[in-house]
């Protein structure tokens, strides 16, 4: 659980960074080896979805529909109907946005056993700009009945989610980044659907986040400790079904909640947490994310900093919230 902030201070070695796509691709090959129903559909995304090895090993269970996301999702439904367990692997921005009606009807409404692996989500495509960012995908997917939505935080959790997905009943959206992240989970970590992971306990404030921001939240907690404040950190990797108990418990045991997400603040993780708290335990919050704007030009790292989706950004939001509550 070492992040860039501590590393910069030279107290600890720079952590090993990994691309979650490697863990997903490697686990998908394992699943295909275990279960002959596992197959992959890509939309010309052979490299971006890291599926070259899968294609080589399982050519008969590998379909490239070309640049055609509507067909891709429909094909997923048909494969599932025909007795396969399809994984649709492509850039999240196209898979969710271009094929949204198919995701709604062919997957969510149909309760089809299809897994969408939305690659390079959030602002991972950086300089390519808002057309290629997928800052809306959480808001769009989490409102759909029957659709499970998961955002893994590191390579360990990505592999664990993929392992879990084989036996999941119903459609899933798994959001997989390409921004390198340090490992925040132990090797033996087991994914539990709908359960937040408490990575650090604390009594003053709770930071709830997921995906590439989890390591930054841990760094924020370290920074807060330097300020004499104690922060709980929850990795809310399952956005749906949401761990309401963990949220309410955090609201009861700390003085406020900061959420942070790599995407639009409206309708996303922060919105989901706010919905729970409004009904069950109204609590002051700070919701970090993009506030009704598309991102300017810049690398993924630049954009995360630009939108305060950093350890210091989370720290400042937490301090501000604590001050208001004191």
């Amino acid at each position: 659980m070492v992040g860039p902030v501590e590393a910069e201070k030279g107290e600890l070695q720079k952590p090993q960074m990994s691309d979650c796509r490697d863990a997903y691709a490697s686990m998908l090959e394992n699943l295909a080896e275990q279960d002959a129903r596992v197959c992959v559909v890509i939309n010309d995304s052979l490299s971006s979805a890291k599926m070259k090895d899968f294609k080589t090993k399982y050519p008969l269970r590998f379909i490239n529909v070309g640049i055609a996301e509507q067909n891709m999702v429909g094909v997923g439904n048909g494969l599932a109907n025909g007795g396969m367990v399809p994984y649709l692997c492509g850039a999240s921005c196209f898979l969710t946005a271009r094929a949204m009606e198919q995701v709604k009807v062919d997957l969510a409404y149909s309760k089809a056993n299809v897994r969408i692996c939305g690659m390079s989500s959030g602002m991972a495509y950086g300089q390519l700009g808002p057309t290629h960012h997928s800052i809306e995908d959480i808001a769009w997917t989490r409102i759909l009945p029957n659709l499970t939505v998961i955002v893994p935080a590191d390579d360990v959790e990505t592999a664990a989610v993929m392992r879990y997905s084989l036996h999941h009943e119903g459609p899933m959206f798994i959001r997989i980044s390409r921004i390198p992240v340090p490992r925040v989970h132990r090797d033996e970590y087991e994914f539990r659907l709908g359960k937040a992971v408490k990575l650090r306990d604390g009594s003053d404030v709770t930071i709830i986040t997921n995906g590439v921001l989890v390591s930054r939240a841990l760094d924020a907690a370290s920074l807060l400790e330097q300020e004499g404040k104690s922060a709980r950190v929850l990795n809310m990797s399952t956005i749906k079904p949401l761990d309401e108990e963990a949220i309410v418990d955090a609201a009861r045991s700390t003085r406020g909640i900061v959420t942070a997400e790599e995407g639009l603040a409206a309708g996303g993780l922060g919105g989901a947490v706010a919905e729970v708290l409004a009904l069950r335990h109204p609590t002051p919050m700070r919701i970090l994310g993009l506030q009704d704007v598309f991102a300017p030009t810049g690398s993924a790292e630049f954009l995360l900093q630009h939108f305060n989706l950093t350890a210091t950004g989370m720290r400042d939001a937490a301090l501000n919230l604590i001050a208001e509550r004191t």
Binding site: V75, G78, N81, G82
Partner: peptide, 15 residues
Amino acid sequence: HGLPIAVGMALAARM
């Protein structure tokens, strides 16, 4: 929606 789904089914039978 039907034709993409049917294509997926036909691919499943093939696989």
